[in-house]
């Protein structure tokens, strides 16, 4: 199955890249933009048929490596 992990800074942690992108969007005329957050997406194939096992494996990957939970939140999407 295909796994998509989204990682972004926690609410309350200043996202300076988001802020810079926000200003840039405003400066090219998109004044209707607010609360820009920049995150990253990690996509991979997982050789696993059991969805519960996949979920628990990927959660461990996020906790141990893919996200730094001091500053980041993560979400896991299983694409079939």
């Amino acid at each position: 199955m295909k796994i998509v992990v989204n990682v972004s800074l926690k609410n309350g942690v200043l996202d300076s890249q988001g802020k810079a992108v926000h200003h840039a969007l405003n400066s090219i005329g998109f004044n209707n933009v607010d609360n820009v957050r920049v995150g990253k997406q990690i996509i991979f194939d997982l050789n696993e048929n059991n969805e519960a096992k996949a979920k628990s494996d990927v959660t461990k990957m996020c906790e141990d490596l893919l996200a730094n939970t001091v500053i980041e939140d993560y979400s896991i999407e299983i694409v079939k």
Binding site: L9, V13, L14, S16, Q17, A20, N68, V70, I71
Partner: peptide
């Protein structure tokens, strides 16, 4: 050391980028 948990906290991108 921060990533490995030997020191508390984390280092993020400089605020001025």
């Amino acid at each position: 050391l921060a990533e490995s948990g030997l020191l508390p906290g984390a280092l993020m991108r400089n605020s001025g980028l």
